[in-house]
Amino acid sequence: MLDDRARMEAAKKEKVEQILAEFQLQEEDLKKVMRRMQKEMDRGLRLETHEEASVKMLPTYVRSTPEGSEVGDFLSLDLGGTNFRVMLVKVGEGEEGQWSVKTKHQMYSIPEDAMTGTAEMLFDYISECISDFLDKHQMKHKKLPLGFTFSFPVRHEDIDKGILLNWTKGFKASGAEGNNVVGLLRDAIKRRGDFEMDVVAMVNDTVATMISCYYEDHQCEVGMIVGTGCNACYMEEMQNVELVEGDEGRMCVNTEWGAFGDSGELDEFLLEYDRLVDESSANPGQQLYEKLIGGKYMGELVRLVLLRLVDENLLFHGEASEQLRTRGAFETRFVSQVESDTGDRKQIYNILSTLGLRPSTTDCDIVRRACESVSTRAAHMCSAGLAGVINRMRESRSEDVMRITVGVDGSVYKLHPSFKERFHASVRRLTPSCEITFIESEEGSGRGAALVSAVACKKACMLGQ
């Protein structure tokens, strides 16, 4: 009897593995994704193909990295998701002549009506938060230079001027797309009239992360975010950046690689679950690469896999709870928690219980395998993109072996128990001629924006502006 049951459990697990095998990517698959990513990057950089390229390769006008001589107080704003952060950054000489960066910050959550109302409502709310922060720190009387981390696709015309191309991540505030974001912020500050600010720089969160990590390690020339969304930036040779005049030196390019796949480059790798996630998203047909990796989508992918296993009578005796059938019910943090389970399955059992399920031991094991399959594919897909960037940098610099540091931020990278190990191992397999160091950014977005502002202020002083 026991043997029969054991055989049935083994057969069930084997069927589960057959279904989950769809998520496995072979090294040849990853090399294919990497080569296609490089081709799209090239198209994004070139003037004649930029418009139709899915990977936009947006110039950021960040050319210099901090040298350690900029000092002063800077205000930093960070808008990239449902939370908005205001930070005071003091850049100065530390002990023994070292450079020191001290920060104080406060988080504000953005109400739904500000995210989806008008641009005026959104930026009025942001300036209200700045006003509140300055009151708390008794700094209303000071006109501070301000660095703005704005983590949406922007076409820069200068370091302090950028046109919002399109909202992502659930934002829909009308009247912002096609307009200068810094102008919208300046107008809102003017409307309030109770404080003055000098907006000197606007950067993407990947750029802010790279600059913040450069402060720790001067070989950091790539910034990457794996959180709600997924994106990367890197220092490109100016001669390859056709959208900006000049051939000397390097400029940081914001790849906006989340949109890779929007022209069909990933079609052969998309599964039924991916198509369902895409169809029910706020932007169907867009940001397809990001939807395979980002935390906004990972939990939902797992939920759809679990429903398939229920329908195949391989999980929960073929019956799903009402909660499990509800879109968004299986949160991405559950994926991390399930994979963090120590082996007694308590954590998995508790999560499934909150979803109205009474799982068996085998159910718990199957749910864990589903989570591992989805998150491992995410790590491997992400590795193909980064390997594409790094191999490109090595080739354009004609280096036999390139040493490089990548600064990384984002909740999936930082909080998932195995993502970074799987990701690092896969990147290294795909970049055999590179020695890569990964560092995690601390308060990256805010500190990085302030350091970019410090560079901009120093330049302005040198130019006598």
Results as ranks from 00 to 15, higher is better:
389 V>H: 03
168 T>W: 01
124 D>Q: 04
125 Y>P: 02
56 K>G: 10
307 L>K: 07
387 A>G: 08
410 G>R: 04
72 G>M: 06
324 L>N: 05
8 M>K: 14
194 D>Y: 01
415 L>I: 07
238 M>G: 08
211 I>T: 15
464 G>Q: 12
182 V>I: 05
20 L>E: 06
134 L>H: 03
451 L>W: 01
336 S>C: 11
190 K>N: 14
59 P>G: 03
286 Q>L: 11
293 I>S: 02
260 F>C: 09
222 V>W: 06
210 M>E: 02
17 E>Y: 06
314 L>H: 13
392 R>H: 14
141 H>I: 04
207 V>Q: 00
157 E>R: 02
329 A>W: 14
332 T>R: 03
127 S>I: 07
226 V>G: 03
153 P>W: 00
405 T>Y: 09
55 V>Q: 02
51 E>V: 08
320 A>E: 15
42 D>L: 11
313 N>M: 15
429 R>T: 14
30 L>G: 14
234 Y>S: 04
105 H>Q: 10
15 K>W: 12
24 Q>C: 10
96 E>C: 12
243 L>F: 07
206 T>S: 08
21 A>F: 06
447 R>N: 04
97 G>I: 10
132 D>S: 07
409 D>T: 09
41 M>T: 12
255 T>I: 08
147 G>A: 02
97 G>Q: 14
180 N>W: 02
434 C>T: 08
31 K>R: 11
83 N>Y: 03
101 V>D: 08
209 T>R: 04
321 S>L: 13
422 R>L: 11
73 D>W: 14
27 E>R: 09
333 R>G: 14
379 A>W: 04
144 L>P: 08
296 K>G: 15
241 V>T: 05
200 V>L: 08
50 H>Y: 05
371 C>A: 12
403 R>S: 11
160 D>C: 01
18 Q>D: 06
361 T>Y: 11
131 S>G: 15
106 Q>L: 09
329 A>E: 09
217 D>S: 15
426 S>K: 15
138 Q>R: 10
268 E>M: 09
52 E>I: 12
387 A>R: 03
47 L>F: 12
177 E>S: 00
290 E>V: 02
126 I>K: 00
318 G>Y: 13
185 L>S: 00
102 K>S: 10
247 D>E: 12
29 D>C: 14
458 K>Q: 13
55 V>R: 05
287 Q>W: 04
4 D>E: 02
202 M>L: 05
265 E>S: 11
379 A>L: 03
428 R>L: 10
170 G>D: 05
256 E>H: 15
50 H>S: 05
172 K>P: 06
458 K>R: 08
74 F>D: 11
407 G>M: 05
406 V>M: 08
204 N>V: 07
41 M>R: 01
59 P>A: 05
231 N>V: 02
92 G>L: 06
87 M>F: 14
118 T>P: 00
77 L>N: 03
214 Y>D: 15
462 M>V: 13
96 E>N: 12
450 A>G: 07
121 M>W: 07
407 G>Y: 01
7 R>A: 11
63 R>E: 14
183 G>N: 09
365 D>F: 07
260 F>S: 01
